[in-house]
């Protein structure tokens, strides 16, 4: 692999891992969601540093260019991360749906109870009616 692309790949991976750590430290990213990025960044970093490993993976997938192996690996990791996000978004959508439904019902019950209580207190204290 040409040294220039190798250095760029290593720098990008180091930056990615460091940035994800910083995001977690600042609580801008949950640990749960940092996992995929850290694993991706670390594995890409190992692939970029270790030429033997890159050659072995290239032979395994049948790639003629080492840079293609790097891009291919990055693409696969990103696909896994995207799929994970889709699953999480689906779960969150279902949770929001359920919350929305129960919030609507609870709000209706609250208003009904409030009107019953108001009516009851008016019956018990007709003077309040005059004030109104």
């Amino acid at each position: 692999m040409p040294p220039r692309i190798r250095i760029i790949a290593i720098l990008i991976c180091i930056f990615l891992v460091a940035y994800v750590f910083e995001l977690v430290r600042r609580k801008h990213l949950n640990e749960e969601y940092s996992l995929g990025w850290l694993v991706t960044g670390s594995l890409m970093l190992i692939l970029s540093i270790s030429e033997d490993l890159l050659i072995w993976v290239s032979d395994l997938v049948g790639a003629t260019l080492f840079t293609s192996t790097l891009f291919f690996s990055g693409l696969v990791f990103l696909m896994i991360i995207c799929l994970h996000f889709s699953i999480r978004i689906s779960a969150l959508t279902n949770q929001v749906r359920m919350l929305t439904q129960h919030l609507g019902i609870l709000d209706y019950e609250k208003k009904t109870l409030e009107s019953v209580v108001a009516q009851h207190s008016l019956e018990k204290n007709p003077a309040a009616l005059e004030k109104l």
């Binding site: 749906r97 929305t100 919030l103 609507g104 709000d107 209706y108």
Partner: peptide, 12 residues
């Protein structure tokens, strides 16, 4: 009347 806080679609 039950009011949903935002538009969630027919099925919801």
């Amino acid at each position: 009347v039950i009011s949903l806080p935002f538009n969630s679609g027919y099925g919801v």
